[in-house]
Amino acid sequence: MAIFKISVLSAIFATLLVVSAADFGREVDITWGNGRGKILNNGELLTLSLDKSSGSGFQSKNEFLFGKIDMQIKLVPGNSAGTVTTFYLKSPGSTWDEIDFEFLGNLSGDPYILHTNVYTQGKGNKEQQFYLWFDPTANFHTYSILWNPQRIIFSVDGTPIREFKNFESIGVLFPKNQAMRMYASLWNADDWATRGGLVKTDWSKSPFTASYKSLRVEACVWSNGRSSCNSKPSSWFTQEMDSTSQARLRWVQKNYMIYNYCTDGKRFPQGLPRECSMSS
């Protein structure tokens, strides 16, 4: 059940912080799919399905301006080629902000590709992709987005896989002015998702199903032009990576990163994006 509480964090700062645990019925709306999204087990589990007619998706009831969101996901098993399972934050409008986890399906026995991206004011092109060090279809695993004014950290089971820092000081856009909702979806993208669209979705394997549970949100709720956080709300608001986290990040990037826009000189013939020159 969702818990909303007022936390006195210090003698100076008092903030209203939403801390929600896994009651999907209270926290999200299934927004499309015509019944293909289902909330089960008294709100503890949410499943999305995809068939040839439609995929499905849900979104948070609240908008947030900074926060830490954890979601446990079990991905489509078997031949998932052509499918994309997502968990992301996004603001509305034509100059939107967005923070993405996208899981690109593949043929049976081949690894999923975990695709990450960051958009600010409608501009992205900041992709990093990874293989995972486990089978994400066999069990639930926790995928986390930490978003504060200084950095975005993507984590898997508590291990950071990517950090996108605020480098506004050198002219790099950073998402910090637009409130975002949390979204998740399962949809068909066989025009690009698997081997660049060479492998198409095998509809004889449908319906495809992904499962979500244990949603946890620690965030500043944005409503009527105001944040529920009067000031610095919690440790995540100023969180940085310690030396242990930095070592784990380097381990993931050395062993499991398969694409990094910051090393793709062919894509950026006029020069790599500015943030690529900064040390991590």
Rank of each mutant, 00 (worst) to 15 (best):
Gln239Ala: 15
Phe101Ala: 07
Thr263Lys: 15
Thr116Cys: 00
Asp29Glu: 14
Asn117Glu: 02
Ser211Tyr: 14
Ala219Trp: 00
Gly93His: 12
Ser206Asn: 00
Ala138Ser: 15
Gly25Glu: 13
Ile73Phe: 01
Ile99His: 01
Ala81Gln: 02
Asn177Ser: 15
Cys220Glu: 03
Asp242Val: 05
Asn148His: 05
Ser53Val: 14
Glu102Ser: 08
Arg274Cys: 03
Asn148Tyr: 01
Leu272Pro: 01
Asn79Ala: 06
Met180Tyr: 09
Gly93Tyr: 09
Ser80Ile: 02
Ser169Pro: 03
Leu9Val: 10
Thr120Leu: 02
Leu9Ala: 10
Ser204Gly: 00
Ser91Met: 11
Glu168Lys: 15
Asn148Phe: 03
Ile30Gly: 07
Arg248Phe: 08
Phe268Val: 01
Ile161Pro: 00
Lys123Asp: 11
Val76Leu: 03
Thr85Leu: 11
Ser10Met: 06
Leu45Met: 12
Gly35Gln: 13
Pro136Trp: 03
Trp187Arg: 04
Val252Glu: 02
Thr86Met: 08
Ile39Gly: 06
Arg248Met: 12
Pro77Phe: 13
Asp51Met: 02
Lys213His: 10
His141Thr: 09
Asn166Arg: 07
Lys38Gly: 06
Gln239Val: 07
Leu48Gln: 04
Asp51Asn: 11
Leu16Glu: 12
Gln59Asn: 14
Gln59Met: 15
Lys232Ser: 14
Ala219Tyr: 01
Asn230Trp: 13
Ser245Ala: 15
